[in-house]
Write a protein that binds this DNA or RNA. Sequence first.
DNA 1: TTAAAATAAGCAATCGATTGCATAAAAATA
DNA 2: TATTTTTATGCAATCGATTGCTTATTTTAA
Lengths: 344, 344
Amino acid sequence: MKNQKRTTIYDIARKLNLNASSVSRALSNTSKVSEATKKLILDTAKEMNYQPNSLASNLRRGSNRTIGVVVPRINQNFFANVIAGLEEITYENGYNLVICQSNESYEREVECVNTLINQQVNCIVISVTADFKEDAHIRNIQKHGIQLIQFDRVADEVDTLKVVNDNKQSSIEAISHLISQGYKRIALLEGPQNLNIFRQRKEGYLEALAIHGIETDPLLMKKNAWTKELSVEATRELLSLSNPPDAIFASTSDFSALGVLEVATKMGFSVPKQLGICGYSNEAFTEITSPSITTIDQHSIKMGNAIARLYFKEAKSEAEFSVPKIINIKPELIIRASSLKDKS
Amino acid sequence: MKNQKRTTIYDIARKLNLNASSVSRALSNTSKVSEATKKLILDTAKEMNYQPNSLASNLRRGSNRTIGVVVPRINQNFFANVIAGLEEITYENGYNLVICQSNESYEREVECVNTLINQQVNCIVISVTADFKEDAHIRNIQKHGIQLIQFDRVADEVDTLKVVNDNKQSSIEAISHLISQGYKRIALLEGPQNLNIFRQRKEGYLEALAIHGIETDPLLMKKNAWTKELSVEATRELLSLSNPPDAIFASTSDFSALGVLEVATKMGFSVPKQLGICGYSNEAFTEITSPSITTIDQHSIKMGNAIARLYFKEAKSEAEFSVPKIINIKPELIIRASSLKDKS
DNA sequence: TTAAAATAAGCAATCGATTGCATAAAAATA
DNA sequence: TATTTTTATGCAATCGATTGCTTATTTTAA
């Protein structure tokens, strides 16, 4: 069974005393085959359990109806959802997805990209690693005439199609909400600043404070607090200050926010009365913690949809496709108990 | 830029006044090329930004170093983790993953499988839909000489490599634990019985009760309660019985268990004092509900690893690979507050 | 009945890399 | 120096499907 030979169009042609070209035409249903032989060919194909060899036809046509995806982690909620959203639309269009994960390693990301280039995918959809160093591999995609769409974590300086959240705006909304609830000393847990998304969230934080005439305090801005562990650490330091914050914006993730909540509870700060909390991503669990956590929904599935639609629109238009174009998906502030000082 | 031509080995050969075969040999680093020309070729390849065309070489070699995966939903925790586990090992071996989701639709599953067959993947890894009808498409994979590994939700009657959880055993452990805590009327939320995993979990439930000499009560076994909504419904009915259960085993998922918890709380049953709860899958949130939920961890990442390792072991052995072989991953009962009657 | 038009089917090149076989050149041996 | 062995390179077929061009056959029009 291992070395069983597959049926090819030549096998079908031989059996019917026809030429392979006729079989090909019958199968692809293009003109120039009589109805009678077409039926004959289709029946024999089914009978012989024929399955077309995509490798061959893709090689010939120079396209393989495939979109390659490179993400840091497949099993991270946000990325899994974006991929699900992508899959929905690509499937409708008869395309396939090849998925790679860079595991937050720059070297591995480069390898993934190269593999996808070799596979001649029609488009590469990428969200770069936190470990991002150079953009040569990204530019190389374009050099090979492959459509490129960056999303969420993007290399700003490369001109490509981009689908992003408006991180700055959502931060502004989150902070404004906290301020409107009466919180006055708002701390920030930052992510690595080499990633655009974390830079933008910080900008939003700073701008919101400025708008409301609140002075910033360097003591309240914690760098690199982007895992639950790091966040626990940072929160402990913040809450030990002689003048501790009365709210914490965990701009990196809901996991960080969860860390904040745990430490706060342990240290006897009541949430939201003494400490307001806002996370980021709207992970499923934020709804069921006590108190539930205020957070920002990134509409990840919609984002996936938008990326795929962008590709199919751009790819089908004959226009120059390299016109830089940025699609902004508006995130949504989900207000829950952890930031409702008013009502507590 | 759109129609930019890619560099091929012929371009390199022409530039160096060599034959393409030498270029190919130099690049694949097989013998029979002098060190001098090899260096020359490699340098020119880099200079010309050459990327091999995998389609061509795969066609020629008849293999494309790719594993196809078909799962019901990419963004479901369990599957996302299995995929992550798969990816880890396949990457180490220089293979790629092509991922498809069937969206719990049988028709779509068949399509996915066909696409993967056409793509000549080396192996198909599949977990079937709840909507499972016939196994012709699964058998077809084998007919085409493609390695096949089923996992978790498997079509029992097809002889293939399988990687599964011991669902029956884990159910027995869960129920035994509940009994040991003093619960006496234990209800079961079942999943669709056309899926092996749900049948096994039910078997385990029945067997555990039998072992402990507890009679079963048909009123306590709720069919098809496998989403949070259905589970909420079922729980409401159960708790409205004149003689309600004192524990509920949500064998379908933690989401169902969450539904149980919510209804119980709303109806004034205190958990775990009056009602014990056990879920399934160890979703992240089970740790942070109040009370936290007892559940069963399926070791999903390890499962993905095991599947991939199985393939690479079987694929490399020259032995008949179709020997049916089943790998059992032992799930682990994670005991949390929701089932600790003793201490409450 | 014959010429023109339309249709059906075959031929052969092509996509790019791989590989068995043949040959030329260099190295080793006699 | 002549002969054998080794090494490096070229030639050409191959993987399977697609497609422009040609030829054979049928249909339609004159």
